[in-house]
Design a binder for these strands. Sequence first.
DNA 1: GTTAGTGCAAATGATTTGCAAACAG
DNA 2: CTGTTTGCAAATCATTTGCACTAAC
Lengths: 130, 130
Amino acid sequence: MRATKQRSAIVDALDSARGFRSAQQLHDELKRAGASVGLTTVYRTLQAMAESGRVDALRRDDGETIYRRCGSDEHHHHLVCRDCGTSVELANDEVEAWAEGAARRHGFTQVTHTAELYGFCRDCSSSRSS
Amino acid sequence: MRATKQRSAIVDALDSARGFRSAQQLHDELKRAGASVGLTTVYRTLQAMAESGRVDALRRDDGETIYRRCGSDEHHHHLVCRDCGTSVELANDEVEAWAEGAARRHGFTQVTHTAELYGFCRDCSSSRSS
DNA sequence: GTTAGTGCAAATGATTTGCAAACAG
DNA sequence: CTGTTTGCAAATCATTTGCACTAAC
């Protein structure tokens, strides 16, 4: 993968973001910041980075896929703010244990799971209540 | 909501299905079974039933939304077969407790969660190994 | 120079909506 | 009858792809 200015712009934007962003959001932010990066490139870059594990991708209930620069390579879950996208990584054993137990009890194999939490972070919930 | 033959056909198809089905799948099955129901109607009916809680909807990672006739009105999760769509309902407290605890620890409010398990059921994993 | 990367425009695929015709109560 | 419901076709929306063009190495 070559080093290009649009790729570093995308990575920078993701880094400075406090959490998850959709491809469209990132594209907007880049454009607003004056960087000239095509939406296509944003999609392609995020997709490539997600495949190679350098970002975390997850699909929201409304169908948009959101991405975030991910700290650990370990399997983990997220607590994502619906408003600002801030996220907290949750390394958790209870969920894995639950998943494995349920799979075994019902005779399922090769079980994977998705588990994400969505809410309003401290900052966003206080600004909403005003 | 009026009783129409297309609606009962959709409900019947969902009932006889062993698990989750997408709108497109249901439409195909209905057409194959000789029923004449428009894809639009399948979408509208499933959406209406999901809103009123009569079916359970969840979005797969590939973006398709799948539906299933749901036994309980209670909040619960699913163990879904990737191959045949069969699903098991899981009423579980561990996940809820984990979600609430994580939310509280990080100051998030109005937290909802998604947690679904995907794998191969006993039947499908044995037929795959052959 | 090659080859990978970019971006526009057109294509996709799931889902939604406009609207006139068909139907339930 | 009169308001719902239906279903086709066209519209959306996020995302992907074809392809000529540009930049990296």
